[in-house]
C-alpha cells in the first residue's frame, strides 16, 4: 500500500480559527465522557430499581420491570436513538416541543436525546445484572434479615444489595465500558463526540488512517483506564475471607 503517513497532522491547523486537529479530538473526547458518564449514572439508578422490582414478591411490579427489559433489550440501539431524537419530540407538549427543537442549541438537544437513549437502554441490562446478583445470594440471607425485624426495604438496603453489587462488579464493568463505546451512536444525530470529530478530521484533512488510528487509541486507553479503576474498586470492597479476599 502506498500511503504517506503523516502523524503531524494532529498539530496542523484545521483552517477554522486557530484550532488544530488535536483540539477537535479533545473536544470530542469531552463530549463522549459527558454523554457516557451522565447516562451511566442514570442507567445504574434506574436499572437498580428495576432489578429490585424483578425480585420482589407479588406480580405487578416484577411484570412491569420484565416488560421494560424486554422492550429495551429487543429493539436495536440505533432505532431507539432515532426514536428519541426524531419521533418522541413530536409528541411532547407544544411549548416543550418549541423549546427542544428551536430554542435549544442543536448540540444540547442531541445531547439530551442520546443521554436519555443510552440511559434507558443500559438500564435494561443493568436491571438483569442486579436481578441475577440478588437471586444468586443464598435464600437464608433475606430470611435472616426479615427474622430480626427488618422491613423489605431495609432487607434490600443493608443485607441484599451490598452483597449483590459486589457479586456483579465484573459484568457491571462490561456495561460501563459498553456505554462509552455505544456513545459513538451520537455521531449519527450530529453530536460532535469523539467519532464525529474523527470523521470530520478525516474529511477535512484527508488523513483518514491517522484520524481513525488516534480514535482507536483514545477509546482503548479510555476503556483500559476504566477497567483498571473498576478492578481497584472490586479489590477494595472484597469481603475478607471470601472470593479470594485477604484472610
Amino acid at each position: 500500500m502506498n500511503y504517506n503517513w503523516d502523524w503531524n497532522i494532529f498539530f496542523k491547523s484545521t483552517g477554522i480559527g486557530s484550532e488544530i486537529y488535536l483540539d477537535w479530538f479533545i473536544s470530542g473526547l469531552g463530549w463522549t465522557i459527558a454523554v457516557a458518564l451522565v447516562a451511566w449514572i442514570a442507567a445504574l439508578a434506574i436499572g437498580s430499581v428495576l432489578g429490585v422490582m424483578r425480585t420482589l414478591p407479588g406480580k405487578v411490579l416484577p411484570a412491569i420491570a420484565t416488560a421494560y427489559v424486554e422492550l429495551f433489550r429487543n429493539v436495536p440501539l440505533l432505532v431507539q436513538l432515532f426514536m428519541w431524537y426524531f419521533v418522541v419530540p413530536d409528541y411532547l407538549p407544544e411549548a416543550t416541543q418549541i423549546w427542544f427543537k428551536q430554542e435549544l442549541n442543536p448540540a444540547t438537544s442531541a445531547y439530551i436525546s442520546v443521554v436519555v437513549c443510552l440511559a434507558l437502554f443500559t438500564a435494561a441490562r443493568v436491571c438483569e445484572q442486579v436481578r441475577t446478583g440478588i437471586q444468586a445470594l443464598p435464600r437464608g440471607q433475606s430470611a435472616a434479615a426479615l427474622a430480626v425485624g427488618f422491613s423489605i426495604g431495609q432487607t434490600y438496603r443493608y443485607v441484599l444489595l451490598p452483597q449483590a453489587f459486589r457479586v456483579i462488579i465484573p459484568p457491571l464493568t462490561s456495561e460501563f465500558l459498553n456505554i462509552f463505546k455505544n456513545s459513538s451512536v451520537a455521531s449519527l444525530i450530529g453530536l460532535m463526540e469523539l467519532l464525529a470529530q474523527t470523521k470530520q478530521t478525516a474529511e477535512f484533512s484527508a488523513n483518514i488512517f491517522e484520524a481513525f488510528t488516534l480514535a482507536t487509541v483514545i477509546y482503548f486507553v479510555l476503556n483500559m483506564s476504566l477497567m483498571t479503576l473498576m478492578n481497584l474498586i472490586e479489590k477494595k470492597v472484597r469481603i475478607p475471607g471470601m472470593m479470594g479476599g485477604a484472610k
Binding site: 443464598p138 437464608g140 469481603i239
Partner: peptide
C-alpha cells in the same frame, strides 16, 4: 438458622 446466615459482608 441451620446454616447460620450471618451477613458475609
Amino acid at each position: 438458622f441451620q446454616h447460620f446466615n450471618l451477613y458475609p459482608h
